[in-house]
């Protein structure tokens, strides 16, 4: 490993932390991938009534709440839905 590589790469500490954060989200929420898929399809169906969305690139996940949550532990449902056309 060249000396310059050391500074460019992400430290393994950061990698470990990032991996754990994602890992624990699915561990903590007792939510099966099948159920997530059902939720995803339902959301897509509802949004599609109002605008054209890219369902193949849509992403939903349950993650730890932001700083505004009261106890900091309650999870949030996060959805990233690419819009193809705002007009229906």
């Amino acid at each position: 490993m060249s000396i310059f590589n050391i500074f460019r790469r992400k430290t393994s500490r950061q990698i470990a932390k990032d991996r754990l954060k994602i890992l624990l989200i699915s561990d903590r929420v007792n939510c099966s991938p099948e159920m997530m898929e059902l939720i995803k399809n339902d959301i897509a169906e509802v949004i599609s009534k109002y605008m054209k969305i890219d369902t193949s690139n849509m992403d939903i996940q349950i993650s730890k709440a932001g700083t505004n949550s009261r106890n900091g532990k309650s999870p949030v449902l996060y959805a990233n839905i690419p819009i193809l056309d705002l007009r229906n």
């Binding site: 430290t11 393994s12 500490r13 470990a16 932390k17 954060k21 624990l24 532990k73």
Partner: peptide, 18 residues
């Protein structure tokens, strides 16, 4: 290892486990 950024720190672990 922590000094080299190759191990999670005490604060990292506390942050995750709370």
């Amino acid at each position: 290892l922590i000094r080299r950024g190759e191990m999670m720190t005490v604060d990292d672990v506390l942050d995750i486990l709370g």
